[in-house]
């Protein structure tokens, strides 16, 4: 998609400005600035914040005067991969390593159509075995393959 103005850099610049101003004012308000000779904890971060906002301005303004395209995000891949990671994080302490790997693999495979049900299961088993061999046996890290919650 092509637009009259460069929305991508307008968004990018605006984000930098918001983030920079927030950090700059937050640091100025909450931390001791000190003097140049004895810089307090707030001095360096507040400079950085305002610098970031200034850079954001230089990203945003030229973008108003040129055409641009906005890339289309890969929503499906984004959600599948992040969801898989989240599910892993939430299940590893409850169910153990192997079930967490199964869930992670199943979720992440959904990002793509290429692997069928059988292929997915084989991959789950292979990855679980690999993980146990490398982390448990090889590196001797105490990770529990299974946890029985009941």
């Amino acid at each position: 998609m092509s637009h009259r103005v460069d929305y991508r850099d307008i968004i990018a610049g605006a984000l930098l400005i918001v983030l920079g101003l927030f950090a700059g004012f937050y640091a100025t308000a909450n931390y001791n600035l000190g003097t140049l000779r004895h810089m307090g904890p707030g001095m360096f971060p507040s400079w950085l914040g305002f610098m970031l906002a200034g850079l954001g301005f230089f990203v945003l303004v030229p973008a108003l005067f040129r055409a641009g395209t906005l890339p289309k995000p890969d929503i499906r891949q984004f959600i599948a991969v992040l969801a898989g990671t989240l599910i892993f994080a939430l299940t590893i302490n409850v169910l153990g390593m192997v079930p967490a790997i199964f869930l992670l693999t199943i979720a992440s495979v959904l990002a793509d159509d290429k692997l069928g049900v059988v292929g997915t299961l084989v991959l789950c088993v292979v990855l679980s075995v690999l993980a146990v061999l490398i982390f448990r046996v090889g590196l001797e890290i105490p990770l529990y393959p299974f946890i029985w919650p009941f």
Partner: peptide, 12 residues
């Protein structure tokens, strides 16, 4: 087949 493996290594 590779990227689920990459994710697995990252997570663990």
């Amino acid at each position: 087949m590779l990227y689920p493996a990459v994710l697995m290594f990252i997570c663990i």
